[in-house]
């Protein structure tokens, strides 16, 4: 399964403080998602592209993830230009895409990819531990953070169970088809996964109680901002402010 974060190479962005990365991703995503200004959207895509190059994820992963997200965008390009009312740009037989529809599809493409690249550069280069501590430091409800942390921690364990069950089905000659037997088998597989998760959770919790767990997580690691984190944070803050400013100055509403 491809559900691993990007490998921890030593680029500047990857080593940065998770709180700065989270806040930057959130600020950037919100401003870009709201933008109705073409120059701002193009600039945002440019910035995010630079960041993803600086963060340096492996090219194959980058390409496959970009391709998956853009499949849906492709569907939008096939439909939206023809269903949005407005002035026809060109007339080719019965196809007369409207200017408004093309602009909407273009905006969606720019915004979607800009946010995708920032997620790849900042969010996917953090590990679960540092993200969980960052979330706690940012005052997210501890119960939600613990839920997030445990789910991530045991995802691979349950995926192993799933792979084992799949191998078992294969050795017994299971051949998935569109029939009741197939769906029943998959339903039992879902049930088995749930049982494995449930039992594992009880064992994990008992083990935690034995070690004196009282509902809070303690860490010997202190989060502290270094000079380069402050630089990254400042740069991101300025860029987000510029994007928001472009929106406000060019299209005052």
């Amino acid at each position: 399964m491809a559900c691993k974060t990007l490998p921890a190479a030593m680029s500047l962005i990857q080593r940065a403080d998770a709180r700065i990365k989270l806040l930057s991703t959130a600020g950037f995503s919100i401003v870009v998602a709201c933008t109705k200004n073409l120059e701002a959207a193009v600039l945002a895509l440019g910035i995010s592209l630079c960041m993803v190059i600086l963060a340096g994820p492996p090219a194959r992963q980058l390409l496959s993830r970009t391709a998956t997200v853009n499949l849906f965008i492709l569907a939008i390009w096939c439909i939206t230009p023809f269903t949005t009312p407005g002035h026809a740009m060109i007339n080719i037989w019965v196809f007369n895409p409207s200017r408004e529809g093309i602009m909407q599809a273009l905006f969606i493409t720019l915004r979607c990819n800009a946010i995708l690249f920032v997620n790849l550069a900042l969010l996917s280069t953090s590990n679960p531990f540092s993200l969980a501590y960052a979330l706690l430091a940012l005052r997210v409800h501890p119960k939600l953070v613990h839920l997030f942390f445990f789910s991530w921690r045991y995802l691979h364990v349950l995926n192993k169970e799933y792979e084992r069950a799949q191998a078992l089905l294969k050795t017994r000659g299971f051949d998935p088809k569109t029939d009741l037997h197939t769906y029943k088998t998959y339903a039992y597989l879902v049930g088995i996964l749930l049982i494995k998760g449930y039992d594992r959770a009880n064992r994990v919790y008992d083990a935690m109680l034995c070690r004196g767990f009282d509902g809070t997580f303690r860490s010997s690691r202190r989060l502290h901002l270094e000079g380069r984190d402050m630089i990254l944070g400042t740069i991101m803050f300025i860029l987000i402010a510029v994007l928001a400013g472009m929106e406000w100055i060019m299209d005052p509403c």
């Binding site: 409800h141 119960k143 998935p176 197939t182 597989l189 996964l193 998760g197 994990v204």
Partner: peptide, 28 residues
């Protein structure tokens, strides 16, 4: 979160990961 008791967090979390993995199953 209000109805979630502290002691139930591992249980709900592991069921979440189980559902996550189960949602990767592709059915014909």
């Amino acid at each position: 979160l209000r109805s979630l008791k502290n002691g139930d967090i591992p249980k709900v979390a592991l069921l979440t990961s189980a559902f996550f993995v189960a949602s990767l199953i592709h059915v014909p």
